[in-house]
């Protein structure tokens, strides 16, 4: 299948296999098929396809997954730089535009 790949070797995704119980939740929530199962435990198959959305880490009941998640968005990063905060889209009440 034709897949978009962004920059390689930058993603912060980490999986601690020793904590994994093989519940498959990470496979369910991942929008880019980053995970697979080997020997009844999760493995990272396609790390460079990860977009760091954080769904896997958030839904891992064992806390076996770590990823620095955030908005992969240039405007959001500039917003963060200007305000001295983490990258953030300007989507609060009263803002005029958002993704």
């Amino acid at each position: 299948m034709n897949r978009f790949v962004y920059l390689t070797d930058v993603v912060t995704l980490e999986l601690d296999v020793t904590k994994c119980t093989g519940c498959r939740m990470c496979l369910v929530v991942c929008p880019h098929a980053v995970f697979g199962i080997e020997n009844k435990r999760a493995v990272i198959l396609n790390k460079d396809l990860c977009m760091e959305c954080g769904a896997c880490a958030k839904n891992c009941p064992e806390g076996a997954i770590n990823v620095k998640s955030g908005v992969g968005c240039a405007a959001g990063i500039i917003n963060g730089l200007l305000r001295g905060t983490e990258p953030t889209c300007d989507c609060g009440e009263g803002s005029s535009s958002c993704c």
């Binding site: 978009f4 790949v5 962004y6 920059l7 930058v10 993603v11 912060t12 929008p31 880019h32 396809l49 990860c50 977009m51 760091e52 620095k68 998640s69 955030g70 908005v71 992969g72 968005c73 240039a74 405007a75 959001g76 990063i77 500039i78 990258p87 889209c89 993704c99």
Partner: peptide, 24 residues
């Protein structure tokens, strides 16, 4: 074009940050 990273379905925060460091 770089701004379009915010609309895509596959760009990671780490990647965009790395790109912007030199691009901006």
């Amino acid at each position: 074009a770089m701004n379009f990273t915010g609309s895509t379905t596959f760009t990671s925060l780490s990647g965009v940050q790395k790109e912007m460091k030199t691009a901006l």
